[in-house]
């Protein structure tokens, strides 16, 4: 499948490993050699791997907090506007601005928007959905969702040199090193 394929040339060099420890060690080694545009692929989250590929701070918490605040304020405003401004009902002379009665809905709206923030924010920051990606061209990449571990050095890395990258990955005990076309 080549839907969305827009570029020609080399995306990078990929190495396949058998176990998570080998992947983590190899990632650290590649990074110590000065490569910055690298990525690792594993069938489950590995502690410390994101830091090893040079990922530090996720903006997700801020998105979720912002959406939560928006949901809370919006939920409260909705109740207040409907029951105080637009359609006030006098029930036994009780105050119109009976805010404690609106807390449950305010709370639910907070959670709802924060949850959407978490899911859509995670997908957006991850750039998903992305049906086509060059690593899917690698013949054995199917096992990245089963039991194999991959490390890619991208061609856009300023230090990238095809032969050097291949040679470096081969020293790290991979099962196989292959080129990844765009």
């Amino acid at each position: 499948m080549a839907i969305g394929k827009i570029r020609e040339g080399l995306y990078g060099v990929i190495a396949e490993f058998h176990d998570p420890q080998a992947l983590l060690d190899a990632t650290n080694a590649v990074r110590e050699h000065g490569y910055t545009s690298i990525d690792a692929f594993s069938p489950f989250p590995i502690h410390g791997l994101a830091e090893a590929v040079g990922f530090h701070k996720s903006r997700l918490s801020a998105i979720v907090l912002g959406m939560g605040i928006l949901g809370g304020l919006g939920g409260f405003f909705m109740c207040w506007y409907a029951n105080v401004v637009s359609y006030p009902l006098n029930i036994g002379g009780k105050p119109y601005n009976s805010w404690p009665a609106w807390i449950p809905i305010t709370f639910e709206c907070t959670i709802l928007l924060a949850a959407f923030g978490a899911v859509l924010g995670m997908l957006a920051l991850n750039g998903l959905p992305m049906p086509y990606h060059p690593v899917f061209n690698v013949r054995r990449f199917d096992s990245a969702s089963r039991d194999k571990f991959f490390l890619v050095i991208q061609a856009r890395d300023p230090r990238f040199n095809l032969d050097e990258a291949r040679a470096l990955l081969k020293t790290l005990g991979p099962r196989e090193v292959t080129d990844v076309p765009w």
């Binding site: 690792a40 791997l49 990922f55 924060a114 949850a115 995670m122 086509y132 990606h133 990245a144």
Partner: peptide
């Protein structure tokens, strides 16, 4: 959605999953 198990993706994914659990 084109999930490929990238380390950065997993990191945000776990973060989002934890936040969802907290919510």
């Amino acid at each position: 959605l084109g999930w490929r198990g990238s380390a950065k993706h997993w990191h945000r994914y776990e973060h989002a999953y934890l936040l969802l659990a907290g919510l």
